[in-house]
Design a protein around this nucleic acid. Structure first.
Length: 593
RNA sequence: GGCCUCGUAGCUCAGUGGAUAGAGCAUCUGCCUUCUAAGCAGAGGGUCGCAGGUUCGAAUCUUGCCGAGGUCACCA
């Protein structure tokens, strides 16, 4: 990065001197030189032709000559149309490599002192996690890692939507048809067990609706008046009233769900520093609404409901508390945000939530700002596109929901059969094969999702399994594993330490160093943009570039000892970045595969 | 209808003011007595949704239109 900054400075000085001007750095445009041209950095000349009053080629040559005179790290330049392609010396790039080689934790940026709380996952406690949650948690976990690598102090938290009508539906169905069975007695994972009763509820509800419609009710009337729906509403009222038996069942069923979630979290490889339960904070949210009313930030309508007027912010009026005093969805988020600030005093609150809630988070931020909360300005909604199936949205009623646990198992099986079909299958014992298949299968799944820009929707076709070759996680893992194999071979010959001696670089060696040099900048940009996809695409390109190098140039049988050391260092740094980058994405790097 | 997001190769995606728009999958052709072929090298495949505007220069910024999705609930 300092390379570009220096070149920019030099360019400003040179242009001002050559053409007797006072230009500022904003008109300097420097890009990475595309691979089909010689050079590492390119200065775009077009902005200067008005000043120089000469054609682009002449201007470029003048500036190129002048730059060489002031900057001794520039080895040469070439001019193509309006572009000045600049090459730096092999000595310079060798020095860069040496510096990186000496840097502990290369890619980790200096501490910023900024505290970030990142909320992700946010499951409802009435059913297991599905593909949508998978994107959420992969994105959240990776974003948290990247923000931490960029120097922030990051705290990962979960929000459990543990109350409300949904869990009551599962509870009612369980009371009717559960017959005292438990996850333990049935051998069913807790979250799936409770989810089954949610499905059970839907079935009963549908049957009862049909009966009501047959008895002459409209669909809308029937929807709200089936005996089981009324029972769920009654259950919710009792819950809010603190009915002991209802609370007991609620606690029991939620504990089953949490146990199941824990297994899924572990399998997918995510964690939380703290979990907030909606049930514990929604009451505080109500107090905040009352406070806002007293302050005059909110207003009360005749029926007693409390509203916020956001029309001056380009939004509408929004109800915060119903006339009967019961809370809204937004109330819990207010309460949780307050509690969280008490816990962490964070500068930024990142909420990883799908883009269907864009409006909600605009409102939340404005409401907290109107309440004068110090954490209001720091609210950031990391909004991501939904995961769609070829038929459109996932619908539990149509059984098209892709279950998170099933999906992970399927990918593991996929990797397992790929391995079984390979001749290197014999190199691993059964336990190793199982571990490897999980690492590779999960890698394929995670990379498939993370390589896509978060804000774009993802199309997932369950019929076409996720690839294990090409632009995939396993490709990057494989590139890493092959480099490790090189180091095992070198170690067999007693070579464990490497140092740079000669400084001559082949173009392929130089361009790998240039690419390695980009890594901290990639982390910075990925953190600024909350985009793990930037890291994912960068490490893919690095792996691809290295694989190409690998096919052309041997390391164990390099032309000279100096070349062997140089390439070992390049390979070592490449492997380090691949592993580190994968780690940021929540993907493991097997040493052999 | 208002607002928001997206539209790039047959498919899945990169590319947010610079050069002849790039990868992967799929199709086709080569490469394993040489560090792991989950790899490498190459071929074909494009009106960057459409039309205007700004600019020396537009996939990128802007306006309009078309298409897809989301949202505008006293649901969460």
């Amino acid at each position: 990065m300092e390379l570009i900054a220096q070149l920019k400075k030099d360019a400003v000085a040179v242009v001002n001197k050559l053409y007797n001007q006072q230009v500022d750095a904003t008109i300097i445009k420097i890009d990475k030189t595309p691979p089909e041209f010689t050079g590492e950095l390119t200065l775009v000349i077009f902005p200067f032709v008005k000043i120089s009053k000469k054609n682009p080629e002449v201007t470029a040559n003048e500036i190129g000559e002048a730059l060489m005179a002031v900057n001794s790290t520039i080895a040469g330049f070439n001019v193509v149309k309006g572009f000045l392609n600049i090459s730096f010396t092999d000595v310079y790039w060798s020095g860069v490599l040496q510096h990186i080689h000496n840097t502990k934790n290369y890619g980790i940026l200096a501490a910023t002192g900024k505290k970030v709380v990142l909320e992700y996952c946010g499951p409802n406690t009435n059913k297991p996690l599905h593909l949508g949650h998978v994107r959420n948690v992969l994105l959240g976990y990776a974003a948290a890692n990247i923000l931490a690598a960029a120097g922030h102090e990051v705290h990962k938290v979960n929000i459990l939507n543990d109350r409300g009508i949904a869990i009551c539906k599962s509870m009612v169905a369980y009371e009717r048809n559960g017959n005292g069975s438990t996850p333990a007695s049935t051998g069913i994972k807790g979250d799936h067990f409770v989810g089954n009763y949610y499905i059970e509820f839907a079935k009963i509800h549908e049957a009862e609706m049909a009966a009501l419609i047959a008895a002459g009710k409209t669909k809308e009337e029937a929807e709200k008046n089936t005996p089981i729906y009324l029972a769920a509403q009654e259950m919710l009222r009792k819950w809010e009233a603190g009915d002991a038996a209802v609370l007991d069942l609620w606690n029991t069923m939620n504990s089953w769900v949490y146990e199941g979630f824990g297994v899924t979290y572990q399998k997918i490889g995510i964690d939380f520093e703290k979990e907030y339960k909606e049930s514990e904070f929604y009451l505080h949210g109500k107090k905040m609404v009352q406070e806002g009313l007293t302050q005059g930030a909110f207003f009360k309508k005749e029926d007693g409901s409390i509203w916020v007027d956001l029309t001056s912010d380009g939004l509408d009026q929004k109800v915060l508390l119903r006339a009967d005093g019961t809370s809204m969805y937004i109330t819990q988020d207010m309460g949780v945000a307050e509690a969280r600030y008490g816990d962490f005093k964070m500068d930024t609150s990142v909420y990883v939530v799908a883009n269907e809630q864009d409006y909600h988070f605009k409102v939340l931020k404005l409401v907290l700002q109107k309440l004068g909360r110090p954490y209001g300005d720091g609210i950031y909604h990391l909004s991501y596109g939904m995961v769609d199936l070829p038929e459109g949205k996932m619908k539990s009623r149509e059984g098209t929901v892709v279950d998170a646990d099933d999906l992970m198992s399927e990918m593991t099986e996929e990797a397992k059969s790929f391995l079984a079909a390979s001749e290197k299958s014999t190199a691993f014992n059964e336990t190793e094969k199982q571990v490897l298949a999980e690492q590779i299968g999960l890698s394929a799944l995670k990379y498939f999702i993370l390589k896509v820009d978060p804000k774009k929707r993802i199309l997932f076709n369950p019929k076409e399994s996720i690839d294990l070759q090409g632009h995939t996680g396993p490709f990057i893992q494989y590139s890493y594993a092959r480099i490790q194999s090189i180091f095992r071979k070198l170690a067999e010959n007693g070579l464990n330490e490497f140092r740079l001696n000669g400084t001559d670089l082949l173009p392929a060696e130089k361009s790998l160093i240039v690419n390695i040099y980009q890594y901290p900048g990639v982390i910075q940009s990925a953190a600024d943009n909350y985009s793990p996809a930037e890291v994912a695409n960068y490490i893919y390109n690095l792996a691809k570039q290295f694989n190409s190098f690998y096919a052309e140039h041997s390391i164990t049988k390099a032309e000279s000892a100096d070349k062997q050391h140089l390439r070992a260092i390049i390979a070592g740094q490449t492997a380090y970045i691949l592993k580190h980058g994968l780690m940021l994405l929540g993907i493991q790097s097997p040493e052999r595969m």
